[in-house]
Amino acid sequence: MKNIKAVVNLSKSIFAVALVLIGFNSSAVEEGEVLPEFTLPSIYEGKAEISSASLEGKTVYLDFWASWCAPCILSLPMYNEMYHKYKDQGLEVVAINLDNPIEDGLDFLLDTPLDFLIPSDPEGGSAELFEVIGMPTSYLIAPNGEVKLVHMGFRDGDMETIEAEVQKTLAEN
């Protein structure tokens, strides 16, 4: 009987460890938290690198994307429109490209020119830092660095929600 109890306890611990390993080790960036610090090169050669410090004091829409992700490439031209609509009010759009190799991302940009900042992170260190849980994931960040919105995935109609939040954040600052 004692043995059985020991086995039960052991398996309970294994179970608990498995649960911890699988689901409860995430420290994803959430709404209300502060933008983590990062520095990344631009995907375009010769352009200045992009860092969290360089974005301080601005309202930033930060997106993680890759050229192989269909909802990502649906969203990017819409982000470009949003950028042009609100850049005069102080909106900055930053879309971190996670393509590896980088050429895949550049191929896409040849077809679809985007006017906002595009850092390149083929190793995905920044996505790791943000604990991105799905592609695409985007973050709206207030000038004080506070994350106002985390948006996972991209479907038809999502732009309205995003734009409303952007307007709100711009108006508050």
Partner: peptide, 12 residues
């Protein structure tokens, strides 16, 4: 879990 090292951005 042993398989779970594939992050969302590593699924190209």
């Amino acid at each position: 879990n042993a398989c779970s090292q594939v992050r969302p951005w590593e699924r190209g």
